[in-house]
């Protein structure tokens, strides 16, 4: 193997027109740098990189954890907000229900009072009617009694005047009729009033 390498070097160094020499460095250069790099790489892979990767992974995990925590916190906040909104809506609904009930109750009370008032009014009117009727009847009774008295009075008067002349007779009759008429109108006005 070393002998073969040696020949390659000789070829590379000797041949000015070797096209490979234009593109890659001399053999000792790339070969030994490759060996060195492999050794360094082995050390890094065995010792340095695992530690480094652990740190990197830890950082990723930390960021992920932080994001998850933030998302959770946001979720919680959103839930709390939703709950609050719901409670608010419930409270509002309750308030409007109470208001509605109060309004309905008020309406009922007003209606009841109205009914009661109208009942009262009709009762008062009824009472008034009955009273008027009673008064009318008492008036009629008293009138009827008075008419008897008047008739008796008139008869006595007619008899008392002894019917001297037809003129006086007619005068008496007229006066009686006037009195009667006046009485009648007085009774009527009382009845209407």
């Amino acid at each position: 193997m070393p002998a073969a390498d040696h020949q390659v070097i000789l070829a590379a160094e000797g041949g000015e027109n070797d096209p490979l020499q234009l593109f890659i460095p001399p053999f000792y250069d790339w070969f030994w740098s490759a060996v060195v790099l492999v050794i360094i790489a082995v050390v890094f892979y065995r010792m340095v990189l695992p530690k480094f990767q652990a740190v990197l992974d830890e950082r990723t995990a930390k960021i992920e954890g932080g994001l998850a925590q933030a998302a959770k916190a946001q979720e919680e906040a959103a839930a709390a907000l939703a709950e609050y909104h719901q409670q608010l809506a419930e409270a509002r609904a309750e308030a409007s229900k109470t208001r509605e009930e109060a309004r309905a109750e008020g309406t009922a009370i007003v209606a009841e009072l109205k009914t009661k008032a109208s009942e009262d009014a009709s009762r008062i009117i009824e009472t008034a009617h009955r009273q008027i009727e009673a008064e009318r009847q008492s008036a009629a009774v008293s009138l009827r009694a008075e008419v008897g008295t008047l008739a008796t009075e008139l008869a006595s008067k007619i008899v008392g005047e002894s019917l001297e002349d037809s003129a006086r007779q007619s005068r008496v009759v007229d006066r009686f009729l006037e009195e009667l008429e006046a009485d009648q109108s007085a009774t009527t006005s009382v009845k209407e009033g």
Binding site: P2, D5, H6, I9, Y28, D29, F31, W32, S33, V36
Partner: peptide
């Protein structure tokens, strides 16, 4: 310095 090290290693080891 790199070339010196590589070339020297090569020469010392093989030639």
């Amino acid at each position: 310095i790199l070339v010196l090290c590589f070339a020297a290693t090569h020469y010392l080891l093989l030639e």
